[in-house]
Nucleic acid binder design. Structure first.
Length: 282
DNA sequence: AAGTGGCTCAACCGCAGGCGG
DNA sequence: ACCGCCTGCGGTTGAGCCACT
């Protein structure tokens, strides 16, 4: 037995809303509220629309104080930062941007920001510092230290997973090849427990990133690191591209793709409510 | 002027979770 | 505890617009 449809699709109008429909819906809700029942609302007003459609129309278009049009740099920064931190939780991101709807933000991300952030080759470090609205450039160590030092991170990061995300053939019992960079090389500015010296992977788990941008710094550092790898930066602490080449000799993909792949592989759901902490894979 | 391809964004769809009976 | 209804959410779609050839 399937799920009961939310409305009778045969008798329901679909497609763009007419000004008359908008006016009816707006006038009714402004006068009476939604009555806590969207399903019944269109019948009360005499609209041949699904309740869900009415809700969507109201929330995304008709409700007061909705902002349309271009996003400011500050808004872009918030969207990017939150996306990197929590992923595609558009409703949460929208809650940080008064007047913006989750649909708007989702569209803006999918059509503009995603390309802006991940779709083009990395500019120089200096250029990124000047241009990147998301603040992914520079300051990573500072940001990381600040955000991680005091807080909780609902970020479950495995650098082994990162290697895997690079396209290398990794399994759950992956043995990190010796030519891969050590953790302290990857994140030279991050204070790490003494026990981590020499390890090639680290697991950072903790609980809640709900408090905002905690964990942002880690992404920032890693992104910066990937950029350095990509551009073959001179920084002697950072391994150059060949050191990240997969053992099987497969081609190295671009830093943007690595970052994109990696962020999408992050697990934000685990960790319970424990304190920020580090664990080791080896 | 017509055709084509890419982009934008409003709207739809299906799923998951909350809640009340 | 279970069930069904409703809401909220995130992914996806497609019509319309625009730039380019």
């Amino acid at each position: 037995m399937g799920r009961a449809p939310c409305c009778d699709k045969a008798s329901v109008k679909k497609g763009p809303w007419s000004p008359e429909e908008d006016a009816k819906l707006k006038a009714y809700i402004e006068e009476n509220g939604t009555g806590g029942n969207w399903i019944a609302l269109p019948q009360k007003i005499g609209l041949k629309r699904c309740g869900k459609s009415c809700r969507l129309r109201w929330l995304n278009y008709l409700r007061p104080n909705i902002k349309h049009g271009d996003f400011t740099e500050e808004e872009e920064h918030i969207i990017c930062s939150l996306y990197i931190s929590i992923g595609s939780r558009w409703s949460i991101i929208a809650a940080q941007l008064p007047g913006r709807t989750d649909n708007d933000i989702k569209n803006y991300w999918n059509t503009k920001l995603k390309k802006k952030l991940l779709g083009k080759r990395a500019p120089s470090r200096r250029a990124r510092a000047n241009q990147d609205p998301c603040g992914l450039a520079g300051g990573g160590a500072t940001g990381g230290a600040a955000s991680c030092g005091g807080g909780r991170i609902q970020l479950h990061m495995r650098l082994q997973g990162l290697y895997s995300a690079f396209g290398c053939t990794a399994s759950s019992n992956v043995v990190t090849p010796p030519q891969w960079p050590k953790l302290e090389t990857l994140m030279p500015n991050r204070p790490l427990p003494a026990a981590s010296a020499g390890v090639t992977s680290v697991e950072m788990t903790s609980s809640s990133m709900a408090s905002g941008f905690a964990g942002y710094g880690i992404h920032d550092e890693l992104y910066d690191f990937l950029y350095k790898c990509e551009s073959g930066a001179q920084d002697s602490l950072i391994p150059s591209l060949p050191e990240l080449q997969c053992p099987d000799g497969s081609a190295i993909i671009g830093a943007d793709e690595k970052f994109s792949t990696w962020t999408s592989s992050c697990d934000y759901g685990s960790g319970g409510s424990g304190e920020y902490g580090l664990g080791y894979d080896q």
